[in-house]
Structures are given as C-alpha cells and as structure tokens.
C-alpha cells in the first residue's frame, strides 16, 4: 500500500496584507504560489498558495516585503 504523499511544508498568506508584488512567485522553486482572484481590502490583487507541493524552504518569506503577509510552516510529524 503506497503511503499518501505528505508535503514537507505549508504556507499561509494573509490576503489583506499582500500587495501583489509577486516576488514570492518569482522566487518559489516549486511554483506553488499563484495570483488569487479579485482584489483585497488594500485594492491589490493578492497571491495565494495553490494548496499542495510546498517544501517549506522559506524563500517566499524572505522575498516578501511585508512583515506578516506570509507564514511558513514545516512538517512536524505525519501519520
């Protein structure tokens, strides 16, 4: 029985803190960040996590100019 693939990381993006600069998209090595639909409270088109494939590398966190827009999580344990 093949084990279900578990991502090593996960990110949360605060939709209203994002300014849509897309630098996180530029630096993400596994291409799991994309533009979201619509505009946020600031009037920018924010980004979102595609929901799968994050490795928890943290590149997006340091490329993001907003202090609290991105939080990176890493897998503590699975199963």
């Amino acid at each position: 029985m093949a084990a279900e693939k578990v991502d090593r990381g996960r990110i949360e993006i605060s939709r209203d803190e994002c300014k849509g600069c897309q630098l996180c998209i530029t630096v993400c090595p596994v291409h799991v960040i994309e533009l979201d639909e619509g505009l946020n409270r600031q009037g920018y088109r924010p980004v979102r996590y595609t929901g799968a494939g994050c490795t928890g590398c943290g590149f997006c966190f340091y490329a993001c100019p907003e202090p609290g827009a991105i939080t990176v999580f890493r897998l503590a344990r699975s199963a």
Binding site: D16, E17, K19, Q22, Q42, Y62, C64, P65, P67, G68
Partner: peptide, 21 residues
Amino acid sequence: IKEVTHYCPGCGHGELHKMIA
C-alpha cells in the same frame, strides 16, 4: 489597515526590515 507597511509593492525596504528584525 494597520498590519501593512507604507512601502510600495516589491520595495526592498520591507525585505531588509525583516532580516534586521
């Protein structure tokens, strides 16, 4: 919105601020 900086989208200041913090 009091959670965001006054910097423009993509401004390097925010990135450097984060490293310093």
